[in-house]
Design a protein around this nucleic acid. Sequence first.
DNA 1: TGAATTATTAGACTGCGTACATAAATTAGG
DNA 2: CCTAATTTATGTACGCAGTCTAATAATTCA
Lengths: 176, 176
Amino acid sequence: MSSVAALEDAAMELFLEQGYQNTSIDEIARRAGISRATFFNYCDTKSDVLWVDVDRALASLETLLGSALSLREALHSVASAQPRERIPLVASQSEAMGLGDELAASAGVRLDRLRLIIAGSGVEHQDVWLVLGAIVGALVSWARAPSPREELVGLLDEQLQRIRGALGQHSVATLF
Amino acid sequence: MSSVAALEDAAMELFLEQGYQNTSIDEIARRAGISRATFFNYCDTKSDVLWVDVDRALASLETLLGSALSLREALHSVASAQPRERIPLVASQSEAMGLGDELAASAGVRLDRLRLIIAGSGVEHQDVWLVLGAIVGALVSWARAPSPREELVGLLDEQLQRIRGALGQHSVATLF
DNA sequence: TGAATTATTAGACTGCGTACATAAATTAGG
DNA sequence: CCTAATTTATGTACGCAGTCTAATAATTCA
């Protein structure tokens, strides 16, 4: 098992047992069998351990868009790679971890990263926040849905179709 | 001058002079003529000092919605109260302060607060992120526009009109 | 004026995140 | 197989954010 996965498991266990605030990086590292210093070789901050999967997906998106794919194609590719049955625990167990404002704060970093991705993909300036809202809305409703979930790709398309009429032609060209 | 305004001024000066990361709460408090301990009587966190005006507006929104106004009325009221010529410095000077991820993180907290407001105002579940995107898009484009700005209310109405067709009837009822 | 309430302050403490130096482990080449 | 180079893991010290508690000043009010 890769060390970052071991960190995720150890952290999630502790967060669910004791809460996020009451769990120190020391404890996470100890349970994962590494030192505190090594923790920071895998995660820059304590909250990063919640978002490993999401950050990986965002990195994929950036890579795909860097190789001249359209936003639609890149989204489709990354969305298809997400398993329907196992979603990031931050999406399903966030209340149980007692995250408080750390959830919204660390989510904000990922939201901004996605915003930059959208803005750099050909979506028009005045459409970026709308597209962001549609995509995140789809992601959230997908993550919150009970298993068995439908395919994420379908939900994404559905949400984006709803705002198609509100978008400029360049935006439509990259998204449809 | 209220002490929180003095804190804002002192903090903004220092952030612009030295950057956000290189400015300690001690320095902010000292320049504002208070002690570090007192700083925390006015702001819970260092980044809160960036968002005093925004948090005040959000609190107004919550108050107005608590007194049975529709979301449209509450938004209109709060938006009309924002001066066109003076916007929160976090919106216009964020790059110069070297905020880094702290901007997205602290913005995420406010975004989530606004999301909760929208969700509690009668907007349908599946429309919340879309409405949030439209509203934030309007706010951002308003804040980024050069002076003299048009009225925020107009921009808000304009952005919301664009997604009207995508919303359910309950959402439309609270927003139009 | 004196009491009660509130605002301010000092100081100690936990823990995050950084910096830097050191040591172990892995890989590569001869 | 051994050594050198590189990567990965670790120890330690530090600055600073945010919390807590207790004590002091300032303000309000009877």
